[in-house]
Design a protein around this nucleic acid. Structure first.
Lengths: 210, 210, 210, 210
DNA sequence: CATGAATGAGAGTTCATTCAT
DNA sequence: AATGAATGAACTCTCATTCAT
């Protein structure tokens, strides 16, 4: 009859919720994610979600912000103190790729948010998104200044990298299946290093000279 | 006491539902789309949706297949009877772009489906997706054969095009906002022709020689 | 295994809900009334309440308005075509009393609404309340004009009648109990006719001459 | 890591809860009053409410009893050592009125309790109610004995006074509004003294001679 | 005495789906 | 082919209450 004693540790519980929420939101999207399911994944009472995050929307924003912060930290860490735009761009792509690989749910969450919500993104969230994009545009700008990159439209290049990586990560299962069933060439045996290597090479190429 | 009963033929009603469902699903996503709202958009009774499509899931699949078919038709029409891979690739990109522009909800619906559902995509749907991808790989294959394209990983190139175009379409509002509010360079004044032109140029470049 | 076939009669169902809601709201007050309980009282699905009335608040307003209308109809019917303020006042009191007696929950509902909600009463509801009060003040006004009533503050007289009758109705059980247990004189054997007779006599007296 | 723990004595905390509970219960009613809100009003932890009062219901009863006691003390103080029923009745009305005016939530709480709970009033509460009523009936009884009052039904007279005063207090806002919006004569400028004066005059009148 | 974390039951509400007509 | 009434399960969220510290 010994009941399992609950942790009664605020930080741990809050983090547990945050972590599982990230998984669920990115796997199922906002509205298909149920607070009931999340709670049972955490082995916590439903009410605790609201105790810590007030509302589903509040939890969602917390998740997105955490994701953006985490990605930003990774990228910023790699890119400081180098003064070589080409190298910095490579780093950006590879860091983002390996991050996506180890957190496969995060990038899809991010891009889903970008396309879905149109104009109703909260301000905090918005400013977090901007930081990431600014980090990227600065690399390109410096690249243009030193004559490494040409004919740059940063927004499009940004989405080229993010969009491609995201799709390669999220379609992994589907690509495997398609390969097995129909012998289609879906890059199903490519690992993340190869993929990011390829993307890097190609992006560098398309930015080079006139 | 005679009730007014709308007399319409089956085909018209079914199509009406399909068209409005496409709009709703792509604007709001699967779970946020309500059959109630759809019915009232069609000026039809809720039950009719189930009469024609059995279930929400069934309707959704019908929508996706129709979308894929429509896109395929557009792309196939443009690309037959030309025997110039570079030109064919340009056509593919531009056709897909202009299609996305005039049906802004469709590509996002497609890509959402790709990343979301993982392995549980129904067979019919799966085969429709394959057709589109095969059309694209054939262009690249011929390009390699005649020495126009080099070092091609079709899956990645495919996603580069689709992912970028899709993100540029779906983030339109957000990019406008970010530009107005913070003066960020988000390509907010670019129109679809410029965007697809740029992508085409860059993709062609990255495929050219070693 | 024969299931009870549901009525599928909109008017009947809606009325059933309205009637039971009136009982519950007046017995338990707004917030203690549960839509779950109401539904099972009606032997209907909870969702039907929202199908017919949109929200708990909507149902509540419908109930109040119906109650006010019903009371108004009773009172207005009795009081037309008489041109004798004293008689009209008697009628008002007795009609309201007998109405309260046969619909014991209604007056308490009304008065609860009056005191509870302070300023947030919806407009429709407000105008219904006014109609009733205006009916009453007109009687007093004519009484003053013809020299039947003196020194009239209509609002206070109005509440004297309504408040007393309401309390006598709603405390019936409690008064019976107090009488049985402690022999207290709580007018527990008085029937409604006697009570309204007494109130009428006393109110007439306090309005008579200087 | 030493947590700040508020040190207060038991009596102070208990009283604080009681006082705020009285306000909340009478403003919002039993079920709309939340223990959460009450706790934060008291700047105390929610659990303390249960530490001191066991349950919400227990707290509620404590509140009601305290209210009854307070009213009783006021009324009893005024009415002893006078031997003039008319004067005593005046005192009763005016004391109760001024008490209602300065504690506008209490009478409504009381009357709500009277009508609501029917037969399930706890014994302690019941006996407190009786004390108040007995005080009143004694005044009337002595009045009859000395030939001041005639044709008295104490229960009805009691409710006439309590009901009217309670409604005048609780409808203050509503009456103001109705006056401003529609110019209705709702006694909206009357202050409590005038009101109780009027009620006293009228009650005295209706008790006088045959 | 006091706290904050945790809980279970239930609240109002929505929604896909079915059924009788 | 079409309707509107009806349902059951799920949803987000609230709340009184308890427990470990």
């Amino acid at each position: 009859m010994s009941k399992i004693i609950k942790k009664r540790n605020a930080v741990a519980s809050k983090n547990l919720i945050l972590r599982n929420a990230t998984k669920l939101f990115s796997k199922k999207g906002y509205s298909s994610t149920s607070m009931e399911e999340l709670a049972s994944m955490c082995d916590l009472n439903k009410a605790m979600i609201f105790y810590y995050f007030d509302s589903k929307q509040g939890l969602y924003e917390a998740v997105i912000i955490e994701v953006l912060d985490e990605i930003y930290k990774h990228l910023a860490k790699e890119n400081k103190s180098i003064d070589n735009p080409k190298q910095e761009l490579s780093n950006f792509i590879k860091t983002f790729a390996s991050f996506s690989d180890s957190h496969p749910y995060l990038p899809s969450l991010l891009l889903k948010e970008l396309s879905d919500s149109g104009a109703k993104i909260p301000k905090t969230l918005f400013s977090h998104m901007k930081k990431l994009y600014t980090l990227f545009t600065n690399i390109l700008k410096r690249g243009e200044e030193v004559g490494d990159f040409f004919d740059v439209v940063p927004m499009i290049i940004y989405f080229m990298i993010m969009g491609t990586l995201n799709l390669m990560v999220t379609t992994k299962n589907l690509r495997d299946m398609a390969h097995e069933m129909d012998g289609l060439d879906t890059c199903s045996t490519c690992d993340m290093d190869e993929i990011s290597e390829y993307i890097d090479k190609k992006i560098q190429k398309l930015l080079k000279d006139k």
